[in-house]
């Protein structure tokens, strides 16, 4: 057994833990700039997390163990996902643990428990958030699966590392199926990470919040974990997109130099992707809940067109 891949695995976790807040800060910063405000700086999320960790917890009277267990679970899921997605290198010992479908289901289990935690306190807001979150998730899931299906057609695999390697060694440049799948993935990722136009991460306006409504009653270290995991999820979805569609730069071997250049490329691509995210978020208004069927329907349509164009055109 080689030791080297394990070093990379640990490196990936550290990158995930450290860079995810910076990435969230970067997105916030871009957003502030684009709206003509001055930003709190790149490292504000760190300061927020630290502050929350040092505070005491105020727990609702009837909170059960599910409410207290959920933050740890959500955090654990995010870390595990970070071991599987090829962020820096495809040579990961844990990569075989999960393919893309499992990965999506991992996020689903975090969502399941967050929704339960939302209902645990017994407030109207919590239930509302859970109900909406699960509705959106059920509409997003078919589109996500269809996108995965299209992605898996080219390489004949659903394993993320394998997919990345297939693209890295591929010749075909104009793959309409991949373009469609990417667009579909983008829409689904927006829905899954709760960004505008599906959910507004910054809102605390009672009737429009979805994810925030579920975690409304959290405080102290619980809230810190949930927030941190949320940032990690955003980061992971972006790196997932990179690994599946733009993997150029990800190290195929465990070479130290390649890993460093992979880190550099990752930063570059994330920086650019954040710009696109912010453009979408500033350009669009939040949608009505029942307009989301059309939004996610379009995602499904795009993914299906990708699948069809693979069979018809390629």
């Amino acid at each position: 057994m080689k030791l080297y891949p394990f070093v990379i695995e640990i490196l990936q976790i550290l990158v995930l833990l450290a860079i995810a807040p910076v990435f969230a800060g970067w997105v916030k910063m871009l957003k502030c700039w684009s709206q003509g405000r001055s930003s709190p700086g790149l490292f504000q999320p760190y300061r927020d997390i630290r502050k929350l960790f040092s505070k005491d917890v105020v727990l609702a009277e009837n909170a059960s163990w599910i409410f207290r267990f959920t933050p740890y679970l959500v955090f654990g899921v995010a870390l595990l996902a970070g071991c599987i997605i090829p962020i820096l290198s495809t040579d990961l010992p844990l990569a075989a643990t999960a393919d893309v479908i499992v990965l999506v289901s991992l996020f689903a289990i975090a969502r399941f428990f967050t929704a339960l935690a939302g209902m645990d306190i017994g407030t109207a807001f919590g239930g509302m958030g859970s109900s909406r979150e699960m509705t959106i998730a059920s509409l997003a899931e078919p589109a996500m699966l269809m996108a995965i299906f299209t992605m898996s057609l080219a390489g004949g695999t659903t394993s993320l590392s394998q997919m990345t390697q297939v693209i890295l060694s591929g010749q075909s440049v104009f793959r309409p199926s991949m373009a469609f799948a990417f667009l579909a993935f983008l829409l689904v990722a927006i829905a899954e990470t709760g960004r505008i136009p599906v959910d507004n991460p910054a809102t605390h306006l009672e009737l429009t919040m979805i994810h925030e409504a579920m975690i409304l009653e959290y405080s102290g270290r619980y809230l810190a974990l949930v927030e941190w995991a949320g940032m990690m999820k955003l980061f992971l979805f972006f790196t997932l997109g990179i690994a599946a569609f733009f993997p150029w730069g990800i190290a195929a071997s465990g070479d130290l130099y390649a890993v460093f250049s992979a880190f550099f490329f990752m930063g570059l691509k994330l920086g650019i992707e954040a710009v696109f995210l912010v453009l979408i978020e500033t350009g669009l208004a939040k949608m009505r809940l029942f307009r989301l069927t059309e939004f996610l329907g379009s995602a499904f349509l795009l993914a299906t067109l990708g699948m069809l164009s693979y069979f018809i055109l390629e």
């Binding site: 440049v173 104009f174 373009a179 469609f180 067109l305 164009s309 055109l313 390629e314």
Partner: peptide
């Protein structure tokens, strides 16, 4: 391939 891609865009 280009034609295929354009066809996809037309669709």
């Amino acid at each position: 391939q280009i034609i295929g891609f354009l066809a996809a865009l037309v669709l």
